[in-house]
């Protein structure tokens, strides 16, 4: 009976990094943490995934950049960020003060930009020591942003490119390396396998779904760039399916995101095979959502006497297809270079 009162273990291991809990805040919705520090107890988060960092500053796309659609939000921010130099000099000092794991979302127009960013950050924060908190605890490679002309999603839809970029970055860091995948692909399992082959520690899926909305009065698209990335509850089923497929294709942890607004949404992702989750658009509506979701997950685990997060995927009551029959069956694993 003793075990009933025990607090469930909600920690998650991503490569060499241990997340204290599975609930992170998704890149692009939380800035570099400072903007929300008065509203959210950031130290209690499972992870903070920063706004993307590019080598040069990016002003972003022309406004309007946002439109709310049924159960969703289309955005076309265009990876607006102050660039690597400002990140190193002005954002790292603040990130250093945080107690929660910090994963830097990295974006580039070329492969060398991805490596340049990781190299510069590694140089700034010093040698990796397992179990020691550093201002940056890992990287999330953004190979899936739909809102830019070059780079972003253009990389994330080609397994060979995903494998090559991931491997180039892998050689630069022992810190946690996560590859963020796009749902705008024929089969996400292939991309997931490519990331795994290049020794990514985890994959996160999904980034936004390409979407468009048009004003029938003016006959113009509602965002300046025409198409943008759809997020919010509208894409949750797409995200859950992608996680389910990806988790059956790879052995590394899958981090689920897309439309999570409450604990039940998060549990859907965990049951589909996610090891951790991220909350994005829901933060805009309720900045306390991530910590409320964490409490909800723990309550669900206590109710069912689940001691460990890793037990959740096995609870999915659905035939566990043999690997040979999974949707990625017959796929030749990508060529590895190790």
């Amino acid at each position: 009976m003793e075990s009933l009162s025990r607090e469930p273990d909600v920690s998650v291991k991503i490569g060499s990094l241990v997340l204290p809990n599975p609930v992170g805040v998704a890149s692009g919705t939380f800035g570099y943490g400072q903007e929300y520090r008065e509203l959210v107890d950031i130290d209690a988060l499972g992870a903070l995934y920063t706004k993307a960092v590019s080598v040069d500053p990016r002003v972003g796309n022309k406004p309007p950049r946002l439109v709310e659609t049924p159960s969703g939000l289309i955005n076309s921010i265009g990876l607006a960020n102050p660039g690597l130099a400002v990140f190193l000099n002005e954002k790292i000092p603040y990130l250093r003060s945080l107690r929660c794991p910090v994963l830097v979302n990295v974006v580039g127009e070329t492969e060398s930009e991805y490596t340049a960013i990781v190299e510069a950050i590694e140089k700034r924060i010093g040698t990796f020591q397992e179990g020691t908190k550093s201002p940056v605890d890992g990287y999330e490679l953004n190979l899936s942003c739909p809102n830019v002309e070059k780079g972003g999603m253009a990389f994330g839809t080609e397994p060979e490119l995903v494998e090559r970029i991931t491997w180039k970055v892998r050689k630069l860091t022992q810190r946690a390396l996560i590859v963020k995948l796009s749902p705008n692909v024929t089969d996400i399992s292939q991309i997931a396998l490519a990331a795994e082959a290049a020794r990514a520690d985890a994959i996160s899926c999904i980034n936004t779904v390409v979407g468009m909305a048009i004003d029938v009065k003016t006959c113009k698209p509602l965002i300046a760039r025409g198409i943008g990335g759809l997020s919010g509850p509208a894409i949750k089923p797409i995200g859950v399916a992608c996680v389910w497929k990806a988790a059956r294709a790879v052995r590394i942890p899958v981090i689920g995101l897309g439309g999570i607004t409450c604990a039940n949404d998060a549990l859907e992702y965990l049951l589909a095979g996610a090891s951790a989750i991220q909350v994005g658009t829901a933060i805009f509506s309720n900045p306390r959502a991530p910590l409320e979701i964490l409490e909800g997950i723990k309550a669900w685990m206590r109710e069912r006497h689940i001691e460990n997060l890793s037990q959740i995927p096995s609870l999915l009551d659905f035939p566990s297809w043999p690997r040979a029959l999974t949707p990625c069956a017959g796929l030749k694993p990508p060529q590895t270079r190790f």
Binding site: T29, G31, P63
Partner: peptide, 16 residues
């Protein structure tokens, strides 16, 4: 301007 976060995080409500 239209806004999503209202606190400066999302960069959605920008003006040139």
């Amino acid at each position: 301007q239209w806004m999503a976060c209202g606190v400066g995080a999302c960069q959605g409500c920008v003006l040139p």
